[in-house]
Write a protein that binds this DNA or RNA. Structure first.
Length: 688
RNA sequence: GCCGCAGUAGCUCAGGGGUAGAGCAGCGCAUUCGUAAUGCGCGGGUCGGGGGUUCAAUUCCCUCCUGCGGCACCA
């Protein structure tokens, strides 16, 4: 029942619900509003075609909720509220809008709601639906509305009414209601009520005619939600529900949820033997051999791309005196989120307090500051696979996606102001190539400009924004404006990629920084012989390795492309007498030099006492791209029978041919010989 | 951090005030097999930690930890 949206909930892309919620770097509400006009890359990059990808979603329904479905869901939230009020007469209502897949209502009760209440509420809702109660709209003067809500004890509604009366909008936390821009600064003089039986709610509407038109629904979960999205406010109980035109659609939706769950990187990652997390180290990852192989493969790849693009790699200390962080400004802003460390000796005189680095940039500045820099050295690109620690709030932790220790593919480019556009462009080009190599074709770029609270003069910001914009433009990027969301020190581009099931993940960033060089006194000698401040570009492409690997796992549902697979080939000897030959083939594969690898093709031998069928089954379950079967025929001919994880049989090949295939495949970083079968049309960037 | 839920074998899960169970995995033996599960046998648990109630707690209560779903946060 949004009187005015408390959050921007107008977007409708299917990915919103699950995608953004799992994409912790996004300002949710903000992107929702932007989702409607996503300028994905206007044209495909030359060279390689986007890989076809499997796609679970969406049904037509979910892709295009349409006004009817949305209206129905909105009405369903009123039915929910009416049911709750019947069961809990003292309940105070907050807001209850429709969402992408259903609705919710924020409710405060004297006795907290529990999941056991949900079936009771559902039953009550069904009764209301059966009674086909009309939803009747009425226009009410604000004063009367306030009086009514006061009388019925609906204090949150009173608060909303007061906001409407004074501001004409209920928008919270700077989220403006696009539908109310014309309301002007003044407030409204009357509001609309909707009455459903003996339940009357403040609401803008529209609604279905009667409750019998509400479709198949199910209450799905309970969660706390701060009133008006502000953690200083009391927390209400948010009852979530999903609602569909009919039972079939509801079932289909629940099924899709299950399917998406199967991609969960926490489940898959553990099952694939990549990593684990345990209680004693919350929010930090134990990388197992296979997971670390994947990590290193990505790192090696990134390193080669960066080197080719003129970056030099550095490594800066983990542990730096607190004083340093005070200088950089981090202590002041992020002290609560920083880990600190003291020497273990107790009672010693020296009692310096160190902090584990939460970011790499101040360290990079120190390297820049050593000796005297010349303009001839610029742009100086310093890359660091920096391991950072941040004490993230416990509730934010999520598998390896949101952790307290992570490794960024970070780099800092020191340059002149004039060089910013060219450097931006160069970076955007690199980023696109890299995303493409990982199989992501869809990209959304946000341009976050000056925030209200900022450092630097307006002229500086004009320059910085213009430079960044020019860079984006020359890189051929279309951007969505993300007003007021820049860093306090400068504007940023934010790169959001879309995965195989349509979820968005913000990964890359490019930030222009005029502040830190000044704070940490970085300078270079210009052509004119005078000292100048460099501009600093902060940039990352993957974001964090941990999170990006999580995204890869979910995107590919564990079925990583060959170049990324920790094990690329599984030798399957049919009987014990074939093991020796299998081992020999494995040695030859290992000895073959693949691009981007340390040790050639990654292969292992299944020499267990299992039957060949079982070995193949195991290899399938492990999603190993190549299975090389060896029996009497192969051993005799010195060849191998090649099976792909798609189930395709390539027949019997010479070992050299297999090596050549895998080499070609890893060079192009695509599954050439074993393309995943698209379940539906390849993912298209839809303009909702 | 806040609200709700959960924690039982390596994994998935059942059970329940009176010495804990299945499937898979593991180990052993047999089998040596032609493209997604060979058979038989064996071992395995402070029932997340601490405290309380009780003759007796894995089960009930309190508390802490961790995880899950949201909210808030995300340099």
């Amino acid at each position: 029942m949004p009187v005015g949206p408390v959050r921007a909930v107008r977007g409708r892309a299917a990915h919103r619900e699950r995608g953004l919620q799992r994409s912790p770097c996004l300002r949710h509400g903000r992107l929702f509003a932007l989702g409607a006009r996503s300028p994905y890359f206007p044209r495909p990059l030359e060279g390689r075609k986007a890989r076809p990808r499997t796609r679970l979603e969406p049904t037509t329904m979910e892709a295009k909720p349409g006004p009817d479905l949305e209206r129905m869901r909105h009405s369903c939230s009123h039915v929910l509220a009416a049911a709750v009020l019947k069961l809990f007469p003292d309940a105070k209502l907050g807001v209850g809008p429709a969402t992408d897949t259903g609705f919710y209502y924020d409710i405060q009760t004297s006795v907290p709601l529990t999941t056991e209440d949900l079936p009771k509420i559902e039953a009550e809702m069904r009764k209301i639906r059966e009674r086909k109660l009309p939803l009747v709209r009425s226009e009410v003067p604000v004063a009367d509305a306030v009086a009514f809500m006061q009388k019925t004890g609906q204090s949150f509604k009173v608060e909303l009414l007061e906001l409407l009366a004074t501001r004409g909008s209920t928008a919270a936390k700077g989220l403006e209601d696009p539908n109310l821009v014309d309301a002007g600064a003044g407030g409204v003089s009357s509001v609309s009520f909707y009455t459903l039986g003996d339940f009357t709610d403040l609401c803008r509407g529209p609604h279905v005619e009667h409750t019998g038109q509400v479709g198949a629904f199910k209450l799905t979960k309970l969660a706390g939600a701060y009133w008006r999205g502000d953690s200083r406010n009391p927390q209400l109980t948010r009852v979530y529900g999903t609602c569909w035109a009919n039972e079939q659609d509801l079932k289909a939706y629940l099924h899709r949820l299950e399917e998406a769950e199967k991609r969960d990187h926490r489940k898959l990652g553990t099952a694939m033997g990549l990593f684990h997390i345990q209680e004693e180290a919350p929010g930090t990852v134990f990388w197992h051999p296979k997971g670390w192989t994947l990590f290193r493969t990505i790192e090696r790849y990134m390193r080669s791309r960066l080197e080719a693009d003129g970056y030099a790699e550095v490594k800066t200390p983990q542990l730096v005196d607190r004083i340093f962080w005070e200088k950089s400004g981090h202590w002041e802003n992020y002290r609560d989120a920083m880990f600190v460390a003291r020497p273990g000796k107790e009672g010693e005189e020296e009692d310096r307090l160190y902090a584990i680095k939460p970011m790499n940039c101040p360290g990079a500045v120190q390297i820049f500051r050593q000796g005297q820099r010349s303009y001839r050295e610029l742009p100086l690109r310093l890359a660091e696979f920096g391991a950072c620690h941040r004490y993230e709030p416990s509730g934010a932790l999520h598998g390896i996606m949101r952790v307290r220790a992570f490794t960024q593919d970070d780099a800092h480019i020191f340059c002149t102001e004039d060089q910013v556009p060219a450097e931006s462009r160069k970076f955007c080009d690199l980023l696109r190539v890299i995303y493409r190599d990982f199989g992501f074709a869809d990209l959304l770029v946000k341009f976050s400009d000056r925030p209200e609270k900022r450092a630097g003069s307006d002229e500086t910001w004009d320059k910085a924004e213009a430079a960044l914009e020019k860079g984006a433009k020359t890189a051929g990027l279309e951007t969505v404006r993300n007003p007021g969301e820049g860093a306090f020190y400068g504007p940023k581009l934010e790169f959001v990629l879309r995965d195989a099931i349509g979820r968005d993940w913000q990964c890359g960033t490019l930030q222009v920084d005029f502040v830190l060089p000044d704070r940490l006194d970085a300078s270079f000698i210009g052509e004119d012989g005078a000292k100048h401040r460099p501009v600093m570009l902060h940039r990352a492409i993957l974001g964090s390795f941990e999170r990006f690997i999580g995204i890869l796992i979910e995107n590919y549902a564990g079925r990583l492309p060959t170049w990324l697979s920790p094990i690329q080939v599984r030798m399957v000897p049919i009987a014990d007498r074939h093991v020796d030959f299998a081992r020999e083939v494995a040695r030859r594969l290992t000895a073959s030099e693949l691009p981007q690898t340390d040790g050639g093709i990654r292969v292992d031998v299944d020499d267990t006492a299992e039957r060949m069928q079982k070995k193949i089954r195991n290899a399938q379950l492990e999603q190993i791209p190549y299975m090389l079967v060896i029996g009497d025929k192969e051993a005799e001919a010195g060849k191998v029978a090649v099976r792909l994880r798609s189930g395709r049989d390539l027949g019997t090949l010479a070992v050299e041919d297999v090596i050549a295939r895998i080499r070609a495949e890893t060079e192009t970083r695509a599954d050439i010989v074993d393309p995943p079968a698209p379940q539906q049309a390849p993912n298209q960037a839809k303009a909702p």
